[in-house]
Computed example of a mutant assay.
Amino acid sequence: MTSTSCSPWSERIVIRDGVRLVCRDWGGSGTSTGTGTGTGTDVLLLHGLAGHSGEWDATARLLRDSGHRVVALDQRGHGGSERHPGDVSRAAYVADAVAVIDALGLQRPVLVGQSLGGSTALLTASAHPGLPRALVLVEAGPGGANPGVQEQIGGWLRAWPLPFPSREVAAAYLGDGKQSVGEGWAAGLEERADGLWPRFDPEVMVRSLDESATRAFWDEWTAVACPTLTVLGQGEQGGIIGGEEYAEMVRLRPALNGASVPGAGHDLHLERPAILHGLIVDFLREVVGAASPGLGVASAP
């Protein structure tokens, strides 16, 4: 199950209903391991659409070194997990997260998700209120019906100039001027004889947005019972969570913790992993009592 002898994480495989799910298990001294101080919490990291578990490497390492047990999941259809699952409903993504938590023995983990992974985390917390200790949404929220999102995202994915001849070329294209973002996306590509290719099928990605294109998840948002932190990008182009959506999130759940990261965009976990780490551990210290050193707090939205 170990990826390589020198890797800082171990590869863990979970099978749910015949679907292969691959995780990066960073270990650590969270509540499920019984190692170290035991003062940290277990953490499950969930990437966004067309992403991969490696996007979380910098954040995962920081969280582990802060005393947490950390696991990052390649969600179905992504990365090393099943490339063409028959079911890409929101419920299937949620069931996968629960299966990984159970199989790897994570004890009331903190669910941290970016973008589509944030949606998975939110819906998991809503459907299983006793399961997570806390919820962290990175550039994610209940959203609203967006009928054009599939055409927009699908068009972008299909337009990639494949295969990429090198990771440098891929990073330049995918980062759109942001080196850390481009490198994060390029790290998820697989090498073939003719070049680098994505580890997902664009049509599977489009189908994964079926529910998000037609509905919002406000009922699920109000059903979340655990402490929640929302982290938003505040770069020149901003993130995907607008002021009205955030205001409604606060109105429905006044105890919501919120922060924004100036200068960062939708992929703020790639742009500012140290700041994100600081926000998470400060949040956990305040609402959970996990003993972790913080690295400062960004401005609230």
Rank of each mutant, 00 (worst) to 15 (best):
V71R: 05
E55K: 00
A92D: 03
R83Y: 02
Q107L: 07
P109S: 06
G79E: 06
H78F: 14
E55V: 00
A91E: 15
G67K: 04
L44F: 04
D87I: 10
P129R: 01
V100A: 04
R108N: 13
V88L: 07
S81F: 10
L131Q: 04
V100E: 01
D96L: 14
A91G: 15
G48N: 08
L123M: 10
Q114E: 14
A99M: 11
L116D: 02
I101G: 02
T124Y: 05
A92C: 06
L63N: 05
I101P: 00
A121Y: 07
R83H: 09
E82S: 11
R76M: 05
H84G: 01
L106C: 12
D65N: 14
G117H: 08
A72S: 14
Q75V: 10
T124L: 07
L104E: 14
A125C: 03
R61Q: 10
L44V: 08
G77R: 12
H128E: 02
L122M: 13
G48T: 06
D87P: 06
S81R: 06
A60G: 12
L62M: 15
G117N: 11
R76Y: 12
R76F: 09
P129M: 03
W56V: 10
L104C: 11
H52E: 13
L63P: 13
E82M: 09
G117A: 11
R61A: 14
D74F: 07
A125Y: 03
L116H: 07
A92E: 06
S89Y: 10
G54I: 09
R61H: 00
D65G: 14
P129H: 02
H78P: 11
V70Q: 12
A99T: 10
V88P: 01
R108F: 02
D102C: 08
R83C: 00
A121G: 03
R83F: 04
A95P: 01
R64Y: 12
H52R: 11
R108E: 11
L73H: 00
V110K: 09
L73D: 00
V112Y: 09
R64I: 13
R108A: 15
A91C: 06
Q75S: 14
L106N: 12
G51T: 09
